[in-house]
Amino acid sequence: MVEIVEEPAGKDKRKIFRVKKEDLIPAMKSFYDQGYDHLSLITGIDRRDKIEVVYHLHSFQKNEYIVVKTETLNDTVPSVTSIWKSADWDEREQYDMLGITFEGHPDLRRILLPEGWSGYPLRKNYDLSKVQFVNMDEDGNDYASFDPGDGW
């Protein structure tokens, strides 16, 4: 049985549900079956000791907006791309920004930053003083390096 705990609503008066990481896929499937056919947003929050992943779901029929939360200690969360295709780019973005590995994602690559960027910018321990430079190789693919004179 999937354990879905309802939490007190946030300041925007939206229902918040919390599920365990292991139960995420069955819980999401049950939400999908209840009519939440629109995955609006996936947010990763770096809580320093753990990573919280927040899903904003929306139902066109019921016109309802709910928040589903889960958390992970080892930076991995199961991917929900099999339920909503919309999760594809969102999960790539959260991987890019926070280093959350979505297990089962078909094509988990960085999306906004170039390949080879070191660090995950939205982590609280990201070092902002280190400057990285983006360059383009001859095939038109970007890469990042710490050397300002690199590239062509």
């Binding site: 906004l112 910018p121 939205l122 990201y126």
Partner: peptide, 14 residues
């Protein structure tokens, strides 16, 4: 392929 105008406004806002 996107990200060529990426400024990470989310981080700046934080």
């Amino acid at each position: 392929v996107i990200g060529y105008l990426h400024r990470n406004a989310e981080k700046i806002c934080e």
